Simulated assay, not measured.
Amino acid sequence: MIKYKTREEIEIMRESALIVSKTLGVMAEKIEPGVTPLELDKIADEFIRDHGGVPAFLGLYDYPKSIITSVNEQVVHGIPTDRPLEEGDVVGVDIGVLKNEYYGDHAYTFAVGEIADDVKKLLRVTKECLDKGIEQLVVGNRIGDLSFAIQQHAENHGYGVVRELVGHGLGRKMHESPEVPNFGKRGRGSKIQEGLVVAIEPMINMGTRRVIQLNDGWTIITADKKPSAHFEHDVAVVDGKPEVLSTFKYVEEALEKKNAVIV
């Protein structure tokens, strides 16, 4: 059952989402060749707690860390390790925060130093997929309209759209109804109504859409070991239109300051 949110609840959720946004901004400052995902995890955990939130992923379904770091062919759910990031890597950082009993959850895929042009294009197109999905989140549409827009844009560029993992409703639980696939047909799925809040999160692969889960029970990788990208926003339907509760502003400011790749 979909739980539609009041304006007051949406404003509370915006607080949680903005802590995630600011934490991703800190990640943007810190990500460079030589830093380890474990170091990022520690920094993020402390920042979230210092800003009145709780790291939402820690212990969720027994997940062992505070953030998710998915490197190169890792699509999502990568567990932070002590392997230093290297020049040319990409790392998707997915962060969840619980504050005032409501969740925020969003993600950004970062370039580590200079990256290949084809990988840069993958990141740019995946971020565009997110924007195109958000545009469809209006009263009168269905979830399938959003899903179709994401799939069409990715596949028009020859990329694979992951089927096994999807976006989701968000609220007092991290994962609520409805599911928000990144593939689908127009006119299908739940009707979009006022007060809907969802996490839209395209997961787009440079090659095949097929994925494999590693033996750690968490990490999902591309079957052909080609890079994958993941961007995510929390979006509410307010006055019939999409209102993005999270923001990439802090990420972009940090990347611009260090002259890093901005997609």
Rank of each mutant, 00 (worst) to 15 (best):
M174P: 01
L245D: 05
L85V: 01
L255H: 06
L137M: 11
P64R: 01
G133N: 10
K185Q: 03
T69H: 01
G140Q: 05
A44I: 09
F248Y: 13
E114N: 13
E164M: 11
R163K: 14
E8T: 15
M27L: 08
G217C: 03
E86T: 06
I48T: 10
K191P: 13
T36M: 09
V139F: 06
L58F: 13
A44H: 05
T208D: 09
E39A: 09
I143A: 01
M27V: 13
G104C: 08
A149K: 10
I212P: 05
A111W: 07
G189V: 00
L24F: 00
G113E: 02
R7K: 15
A56F: 13
S66V: 08
I143N: 02
G88A: 04
P37W: 04
E101A: 13
S246Y: 03
D131E: 15
E32H: 10
P55M: 10
I68A: 09
E87P: 01
T23S: 05
M13C: 10
L170Q: 06
K241D: 12
L245Q: 07
D94C: 09
I262H: 07
I19H: 05
K132L: 15
D239E: 15
G53Q: 11
L130D: 04
P227K: 03
I48Y: 10
R7H: 14
T126I: 02
D239A: 14
E73I: 08
G78T: 06
G78D: 03
G88R: 05
L58N: 06
K258T: 11
I48M: 07
V180F: 07
K30T: 07
G59R: 11
G34Y: 05
I220Y: 00
I79S: 04
V138F: 08
G96H: 07
L146T: 06
D45F: 13
G133Q: 07
M1T: 15
R188G: 00
V90P: 03
